[in-house]
Design a protein around this nucleic acid. Structure first.
Length: 594
RNA sequence: GGCCCUGUAGUUCAAUGGAUAGAACGGAAGUUUCCUAAACUUUAAAUGGAGGUUCGAUUCCUCUCGGGGCUACCA
C-alpha cells in the first residue's frame, strides 16, 4: 500500500510540473503489470491525455521519465500503448522482505481497548432438524468473516441466535410423543439433532396423509391444510407451550437439549465457536415493547382489527404487519426487539452483522428501515451479510422433501475420502495411527471449507454430491500440501537465518513471492471491507501456486552459495507463515506433513 | 403481476471501468537418477442477445432472453 501511495504522490507532482494541472486522486490507478510485460506496477495513462494533449506513448514516457529521476524506488519503466509499466528496484523488495520477515503478524492490525467492537451473528439454526450444507455455508462464512474482522483490528463478538421455539419444534415433539415409544439418542444410537429431525419428517409424513384424506373427502387444499387433526393438535401444543404448560415445556427442554448436544458435536468438528448464545425463547417477546414505542412515535398505526402495521410503500417495501390482530408478535417484531436489546447490552457496538441467506434480503431491508424510522441511528450500522443459496444439480435443497445434504454425513464422507486418497498415495509411512487420523480430518475439513469459502458469498453455489470435492488444483489440500512441503524443507535445513539480506540477486520467482507477501495486508483489508473470505482464499491459492513454481524451478537446500540458500529458506519460511495465517482466517488448519 | 439477485471455457470458480478475459477440474501431450508428482510444463476451449455511456465495458445504463429468490396476521 505504502508503495502505491508514494507513487501516486509522485505522479501528481509529475503532472503538475509537466502539464500544469492537478489530477484527481481517483484518476490515478495502479494495477499489477501483466506477466507478458516487463514491470511490477502499471499506471494507466489515458486519464491524463486531456491534460497532456499528447499521444498516450509520449505522455507515458514523460511521466515515466519524471518518476524515474525522482523516485529511488523505481528502477526502470517502459510504455506500451497507454500503459506505463514501472519496475521497482530489487532493493525495495528485499528491504520489504527484511522488514516483515521477522514479524509473523505483519499483516494484522493489532486490537486494542479502543478498537471498534463488531458483533457477528451466524449459524442461527432451528432446533427441529440437523444442520445441512446450507447451514455449513452460513457457519463457515460467519466464522471466517469474524476472523477476518479480528485480523483487521476489530473486537468481535460471535453470536448464535438459536430459533428454539415455535411451531416447527412442536411438530417434532408431537410426532415423538405419538410415535416415538420413548426413543432417546442413546437408545437409538443417533445424534440428538438427527433423532429430532427424524420426528420432524415423521410428522410431515403423517400430516400429508391426513391432508390427502381430507381432500379425498372433498375439502379444498387450503381447508385440508388448516383442518388436518395433526395441524390442530400441534397448534394446541404451541399454545400450551406459550402458557408454560409443565409437561410441554419439559418435553421441549428435553428434546432441545438433545439437539444442542448434536449441534455442539458438529460445531466442534467444524472448529467454530461462539462468544454468546441467544435463544429465541428468551428474546421473542422483546419486540412488543417496541410496538408501543412505534405507536407513540406515530411510526406504526393500529388498524380497526387490532393489528399494528407500518406503511413502507413510500420506500417500495409495501405494508408490514408488526403485531397480529390477536396481539401476538411476528418474526420481524422479535428481530426488532432483539436488535434494540443488543445495542443496550453492548452500547459500544459499532457494527452488527447478520449472516443470513439472500432469501431474506427483503426481511432485512424492512428490519433496518423500521429501526431507522424509530430513530435508532445505529440502524445504519446493521449489515445483512447476505449469501447465495447452495444448490444441488436438481435445484434447491428442501429439508421436508429429504433432498438435503446432511452436514455430519458430508463431513464423514470427506474424512473417508481423505483417508482413501492419502493411503493410496502412501503418505502415512512416517505417521502414527493417531497422527494419520488427525491428518485425514485436517485434509477433509480443508477441502470442504475451502470449497465453500472460495466462492464469492453473494453468489449462489452449486454442489454435486455425486462428484466428491477435489483434492487437486485450486483446493484446500493443495494449499496444505504446499505448506507441508515448506515445513519439510525447513526440517531438513535444520536451522534458518533471520538476518537482513543484502547483495541478493532476485530471480523472478523469488521476486514474485515477495510481491505476493507484500499484497497480503492489502488482501486482508479488501476481504474485511467486502466481508468476503473468498478474497483471502484466492490470495492464498495464488501464493501457494507461485511457491510451488519456485520450489520446482529453484533449488533451495542444495544451493552452494550459503547466502542464497539461507535467503531462500527464509523466503520459504515466511511463505509458510503467510499460508498458515491466511488459512487460519478461513478456519482451516495446516498439517506439518502430508 | 410487482420487487430483488444472477447469466463468463464441457464443468466449478476469478477478473478496484483498463492491455491479448485468468485459474482449477475434465480433454490432449509431457516432466521423477533432482529439497514430498496431492506437484510442475505445454495445448485446445468462454463474457446469453441487442443497443447506449466512455479514449476504453465481463464490469455502469436501457431493452430482451434464460436461472433463482422474495412478495404471509410462517419463522
Amino acid at each position: 500500500m505504502q508503495l502505491e501511495k508514494l507513487l501516486s504522490n509522485k505522479v501528481i507532482q509529475a503532472i503538475q510540473l509537466l502539464y500544469n494541472v492537478t489530477p484527481e486522486a481517483k484518476a490515478i490507478t495502479f494495477q499489477k503489470t501483466n506477466k507478458e510485460f516487463e514491470g511490477d506496477l502499471t499506471l494507466v495513462i489515458f486519464p491524463f491525455l486531456k491534460a497532456s494533449k499528447k499521444s498516450p506513448e509520449e505522455t507515458g514516457k514523460q511521466i515515466g521519465e519524471h518518476l524515474r529521476s525522482n523516485t529511488p524506488e523505481i528502477e526502470n519503466f517502459n510504455v506500451v500503448k497507454g500503459f506505463l509499466n514501472i519496475t521497482i528496484s530489487p532493493a525495495f523488495w528485499i528491504n520489504y522482505f527484511n522488514d516483515v520477515a521477522g514479524n509473523p503478524n505483519f499483516a494484522f492490525v493489532p486490537v486494542s481497548n479502543t478498537s471498534p467492537t463488531v458483533m457477528v451473528e451466524y449459524s442461527s439454526p432451528n432446533t427441529n432438524k440437523p444442520l445441512h450444507l446450507g447451514h455449513l455455508r452460513n457457519i463457515l462464512l460467519g466464522y471466517s468473516v469474524a476472523e477476518i474482522l479480528k485480523a483487521n483490528g476489530n473486537k468481535v463478538i460471535q453470536t448464535n441466535l438459536v430459533n428454539d421455539r415455535g411451531i416447527h419444534i412442536c411438530k417434532s415433539m408431537l410426532a415423538w410423543k405419538k410415535w416415538g415409544s420413548g426413543e432417546r439418542p442413546e437408545t437409538a444410537s443417533m445424534k440428538g439433532d438427527h433423532l429430532v429431525g427424524k420426528y420432524y419428517v415423521t410428522f410431515d409424513k403423517h400430516l400429508k396423509l391426513q391432508i390427502a384424506e381430507l381432500k379425498l373427502a372433498g375439502l379444498s387444499d387450503e381447508d385440508a391444510q388448516k383442518k388436518a387433526p395433526l395441524m390442530l393438535e400441534v397448534q394446541e401444543m404451541l399454545r400450551r407451550w406459550e402458557e408454560g404448560d409443565k409437561e410441554v415445556v419439559a418435553l421441549w427442554k428435553t428434546m432441545n437439549n438433545w439437539v444442542y448436544k448434536g449441534f455442539d458435536e458438529t460445531y466442534k468438528m467444524l472448529g467454530v465457536n461462539f462468544d454468546k448464545m441467544y435463544f429465541e425463547s428468551n428474546t421473542y417477546l422483546h419486540g412488543k415493547k417496541l410496538v408501543e414505542e412505534g405507536l407513540n412515535k406515530n411510526v406504526f398505526t393500529k388498524k380497526e382489527d387490532g393489528s399494528v402495521r407500518i406503511d413502507l410503500s413510500g420506500d417500495d417495501l409495501g405494508e408490514k404487519v408488526l403485531l397480529r390482530a390477536d396481539g401476538t408478535s411476528v418474526y420481524i417484531t422479535q428481530d426488532l426487539g432483539t436488535a434494540v436489546e443488543r445495542f443496550k447490552e453492548f452500547p459500544e457496538l459499532s457494527k452488527l452483522i447478520y449472516t443470513v441467506g439472500n432469501e431474506q434480503d427483503y426481511h432485512f431491508k424492512v428490519l433496518f428501515l423500521i429501526l431507522k424510522k424509530l430513530g435508532y441511528k445505529w440502524a445504519e450500522e446493521c449489515y445483512h451479510l447476505s449469501y447465495g443459496m447452495v444448490e444441488l444439480p436438481e435445484g434447491k435443497m428442501k429439508s421436508r422433501e429429504g433432498t438435503v445434504v446432511d452436514a455430519d454425513d458430508l463431513i464423514n464422507e470427506m474424512i473417508d475420502t481423505a483417508r482413501e486418497t492419502t493411503l493410496k498415495l502412501g503418505k502415512t509411512d512416517e505417521l502414527s495411527a493417531a497422527e494419520a487420523e488427525r491428518l485425514y480430518y485436517l485434509i477433509a475439513l480443508s477441502a470442504l471449507k475451502y470449497f465453500i469459502l472460495k466462492v464469492d458469498p453473494k453468489k449462489k453455489m452449486l454442489f454435486d454430491p455425486k462428484e466428491s470435492i477435489d483434492f487437486n488444483g485450486n483446493t484446500g489440500p493443495f494449499i496444505q500440501y504446499t505448506y507441508a512441503r515448506i515445513q519439510s524443507v525447513l526440517r531438513k535445513a535444520e536451522k534458518t537465518d533471520d538476518r537482513r539480506w543484502t547483495a541478493i540477486t532476485l530471480k523472478d520467482k523469488e521476486k514474485n513471492i515477495i510481491k505476493l507477501i507484500y499484497e497480503f495486508p492489502v488482501a486482508l483489508g479488501h476481504a474485511a471491507k467486502e466481508y468476503n473470505p473468498a478474497v483471502v482464499a484466492n490470495y492464498v491459492y495464488e501464493l501457494s501456486k507461485e511457491y510451488n513454481q519456485f520450489y520446482h524451478d529453484i533449488t533451495i537446500l542444495k544451493e552452494v552459495d550459503a547466502n542464497l540458500r539461507n535467503f531462500r529458506l527464509a523466503l520459504s519460511k515466511k511463505t509458510g507463515e503467510v499460508i498458515r495465517s491466511a488459512m487460519k482466517l478461513l478456519g482451516i488448519d495446516v498439517p506439518e506433513r502430508m
